[in-house]
Structure formats: structure tokens, C-alpha cells
């Protein structure tokens, strides 16, 4: 039951953001709609409650966000350099990396983060193995690629999701 509170709160926040009004009927209608939605999809929504609610986890979330935004900008600058250079310097490859994350939501966040960071794109997720397309592959070795691609995000996500 407590695990459905998080998706309900998130949905309700979106509802209030869309309506931008605190009129009584808006508040009640939103609460009703969000309750029904959360109840209908209660099986699938539990992944949203996998995040840990602790001060340490909150700090890790902030750290993750900052790190992610920095990597997103770096990714785009690297991409700009490739696309604008006349010779188009790409040496792509699809490498395998490992993740120690157990939570499905944590793995999803990792795959998403990898997709948006410099030169890498998650292609397939099979259990603990992630297959990543790398625009400029520097190593095809799984351990080295894991250290290079995964480790930065995983240290934050381990605290957030375990």
C-alpha cells in the first residue's frame, strides 16, 4: 500500500502542474482520477517505489542529476565535434558491459543515462549484461568498458536503488 503513495504523489503533482489552479473541484477531481489510475495499474507501478527514501538516497539523487546533466552537455559537444569534422571520425562497436544493480528501475535509469552520455547508446538489456553501441570504441573488453561507461552512474544508482 505504502508503495503506491509515490506514484500517486507523482501523478497528482503532474495534475496540479497541468491545471495550475488550486480550486476545490480541481483538487478533488485530480485526487479521484489519480487514485483510480494508481489502483488500475497497481501491478506495474511498484517499480516506481523501488527508490529508497533516505537522506543519503536524496543526496545521491542530486549528485546523479548533476553528473547526468554535465555528461549530457559533454555528449553533445563530443557529437558536435564528430558531426562538424569533414572526415567524420567514427570507430563504432557494440560492446558488452555488466551492471551490479538489482532493481529493474535502477537498471532502466542506468540504460537511459548511458543512452544520453558521450558516444554510447544502450541496445539490449539481458539480466546483468547491457549491450552498448559506442561511437568511438576505445576498448572491446567487458571489464574495461564497464569501468568506462557504467561505473560513474552506478555508484549513485547503487545508493538510490540498490
Amino acid at each position: 500500500m505504502i508503495r503506491l503513495v509515490i506514484p500517486f504523489t507523482a501523478l497528482y503533482a503532474v495534475w496540479l502542474g497541468l491545471n495550475q489552479s488550486l480550486a476545490e473541484d480541481v483538487l478533488w477531481l485530480g485526487a479521484a482520477v489519480c487514485l483510480v489510475l494508481v489502483w488500475l495499474f497497481r501491478e506495474g507501478l511498484t517499480v516506481f517505489a523501488e527508490i529508497r527514501l533516505s537522506p543519503r538516497s536524496l543526496m545521491a539523487t542530486l549528485g546523479f542529476t548533476a553528473y547526468f546533466l554535465r555528461e549530457l552537455v559533454r555528449a553533445n559537444l563530443a557529437l558536435a565535434r564528430i558531426v562538424l569534422s569533414p572526415t567524420l571520425p567514427v570507430h563504432p562497436g557494440i560492446v558488452m558491459v555488466h551492471t551490479g544493480l538489482k532493481s529493474p528501475m535502477g537498471r532502466l535509469m542506468l540504460a537511459n543515462a548511458i543512452t544520453l552520455t558521450p558516444g554510447t547508446l544502450s541496445v539490449e538489456l539481458q539480466g546483468e549484461s547491457l549491450y552498448v553501441h559506442w561511437v568511438n570504441m576505445t576498448t572491446s573488453d567487458t571489464e574495461a568498458a564497464t569501468a568506462d561507461i557504467v561505473a560513474g552512474f552506478e555508484s549513485y544508482l547503487k545508493v538510490m536503488y540498490g
Binding site: H91, P92, G93, I94, V95, V123, M137, S140
Partner: peptide, 8 residues
């Protein structure tokens, strides 16, 4: 140009 494809 693709070096390796571990998935394939």
C-alpha cells in the same frame, strides 16, 4: 567501420 558486435 564497426569494430566488434558482442551482441551478435
Amino acid at each position: 567501420l564497426t569494430g566488434v558486435d558482442r551482441l551478435a
